[in-house]
Structure formats: structure tokens, C-alpha cells
Design a protein around this nucleic acid. Structure first.
Length: 295
DNA sequence: ACCCGTGTTCGCTG
DNA sequence: TCAGCGAACACGGG
């Protein structure tokens, strides 16, 4: 599932479901999800209160407040969670059987139980003492989050000045634009009318501006698709209406493909109505683009 | 059986 | 030294 829009849904859901709630228990049902940490590391969460959820790119950063009996030792505890390829957060009544592929169970006081579910185990749930997320180099290196801070074309120009990588591969670097994944990269380039094979450093400033706008438009469009599917709780800090999908924030938007080029090889281009969507492989991943209007 | 996959990291190579 | 590539991770679906 997860690129920026899906992780944004997860972040809003977690905030809506758990912010202000106290943790009753944490159960790890597959220790591989801890990525080498000891199973006992999650005990630091028990008795704390979930204070906030932040999303940077595809990363979920949860902050839990001090334990009940030790307010003086105002030690926060963090959780860095990444959904990998198949991760998601679900909410279930405490007495229900756990969902298939549940890896971590989070029991809350006075609220339904939350599950981190991840079939392929590329995702993780890592406890971060002191909520000191910045000590992880990959987190410290993340670029500004596009949804909150926009995408600055001038910054793209500077960072891509010497890159010979194909532009599609270059924009998937999380230190450049966090949250861009294999789908959003193709979608953003199609909206911008740019050939994904172009060397990154060959794009001029007008093209980089179009690319920045195209990526943002695709992020927002995908979020709207989730909203229409009833899967999107209100923005963090926004009004608190309950999400209409009460138990699971999103299972699928149906069999409908909401994208303009992704997985549409052979179809007519929706942008120019002349070209044909073509699939190529770049850096081992599928890329889709219009053979006519992306130059 | 075989290939594919919305992500990331690591090791090898030129 | 380093950018760039392929493999590896794990497991279900077509």
C-alpha cells in the first residue's frame, strides 16, 4: 500500500484512534517486526499516553508521554513505524481475534485495540527511547515533507544539478522528496509532461516547477480518492468527525485503479489523448509513461 | 511453476 | 571515493 498518501491516512487514523489514550499493553507477535530490537523494548510504552503522531514522508513518528507513576522523569518514548510494502494499522474490538498477519498489538485504555499488520515484514515498529528520532541518520536526512512544506523547485535544481540518474529514479530518493514512491513518481512525471528517462540534471527550472506541482497534485488527488472511499479521518488538528470507515481505515479503494498511468500499459494517455502508456523498467522497478506527451 | 510487487538496505563494480 | 546497479529481505496473488 504505502506511499505518502497512504501513510497520511494511517497517521490521521492513529491520531484519531489513540491520541490522548493510555497504553494498557503491547504484544509483539512477530519479533522480526522489531528489526533486531529486543521484544522487551516495547515494555517502555506500557502506562504511557499517546501524545502525538507525526508523518515525514513514509515514516510514522509516534510520541508517548511519561509513565503514569513517574511524571517527574518526563521521559518521552517514541515509536518509529514504517509500513514497508504491505504494512497497515487496523482497529478492532479487544475481544476479536487478531487480523491475519498482525505483528504488534497495542491495547489502549477505554478504546479499541490497534494492530500493526504486515504480511511481507518489510515494515517495522521500533521503540525509540526519549523519542529522539533525529539520532537515526536516515530520518535526519529526510527532505521537507511535501504535504506540509511544499516542494521547492529551487532546492530540486540544486540537489539534482550533478545527478545523471534518470529523473524518475532520482525523485524516489527520500532525502530529496520524502514520500515519493514508485507509483507517485510515475504519476507526477506524467502530470508534468516529463520523460522519466531524462537525466535528472537535464531538467530546466520550468520543468522542475512543473514536476513539483505534478507530484503535489498527485499526492492530493490520491488523498481525495481515499476521502471519497470514506477511508480518511480528519486532518491532524482538524475537526474531529469520526471516520466513516470505522473499523478499518482502508481495505481498498475497490478494484478501480485511481491512477493516470500506473498499471495502465497499452491504454490511451488521458493527458494528451494521443499517446500510448508504456511500461519500462528502471532500477529494477516498473515505470509507466506516455510515449507521446512526456518529453 | 514462475513472475510480479505501492520499500529499503547492502555489497559489488567500474 | 563514489554513483549506480542488482540482490536480498518475505510471502501472497495472478
Amino acid at each position: 500500500m504505502p506511499e505518502l498518501p497512504e501513510v497520511e491516512v494511517a497517521a490521521r487514523s492513529l491520531a484519531h484512534w489513540a491520541r490522548g489514550r493510555r497504553v494498557r499493553a503491547v504484544t509483539v507477535t512477530d519479533r522480526r517486526t522489531l528489526d533486531g530490537d529486543k521484544p522487551a523494548s516495547v515494555l517502555a510504552l506500557v502506562g504511557t499516553r499517546m501524545n502525538g503522531v507525526e508523518r515525514i514522508g513514509k515514516n510514522l513518528l509516534l510520541t508517548f508521554g511519561a509513565a503514569k507513576r513517574a511524571p517527574a522523569a518526563k521521559t518521552n518514548v517514541g515509536v518509529w513505524s514504517h509500513l514497508g510494502m504491505t504494512g497497515k494499522w487496523l482497529r478492532r474490538p479487544p475481544a476479536d481475534p487478531p487480523p491475519r498477519f498482525a505483528r504488534v498489538r497495542l491495547d489502549l485504555v477505554g478504546a479499541p485495540t490497534l494492530y500493526f499488520v504486515d504480511m511481507r515484514l518489510f515494515g517495522f515498529f521500533r521503540v525509540v527511547p526519549g523519542a529522539d528520532f533525529a539520532r537515526f541518520p536516515v530520518l535526519a536526512a529526510l527532505g521537507p515533507d511535501p504535504l506540509r512544506e511544499g516542494i521547492d523547485p529551487g532546492r530540486l535544481a540544486e540537489r539534482l544539478r550533478r545527478s545523471r540518474l534518470p529523473i524518475k529514479v532520482a525523485i524516489m530518493d527520500q532525502a530529496l522528496i520524502p514520500g515519493v514512491g514508485n507509483i507517485q513518481a510515475s504519476e507526477g512525471l506524467q502530470r508534468a509532461g516529463i520523460d522519466p528517462r531524462r537525466p535528472a540534471r537535464s531538467l530546466d527550472s520550468a520543468e522542475l516547477s512543473r514536476l513539483a506541482r505534478g507530484l503535489l497534485a498527485s499526492f492530493r488527488y490520491t488523498l481525495r480518492a481515499f476521502e471519497r472511499a470514506g477511508a480518511l479521518p480528519p486532518a491532524v488538528g482538524g475537526k474531529t468527525t469520526a471516520p466513516s470507515a470505522d473499523v478499518e481505515y482502508v481495505e481498498e479503494t475497490g478494484t478501480h485503479n485511481p491512477f493516470r498511468v500506473y498499471d495502465r500499459a497499452g491504454e490511451r494517455c488521458r493527458r494528451c489523448r494521443r499517446g500510448t502508456i508504456t511500461r519500462i523498467v528502471q532500477a529494477g522497478r516498473s515505470t509507466y509513461f506516455c510515449d507521446s506527451c512526456q518529453r
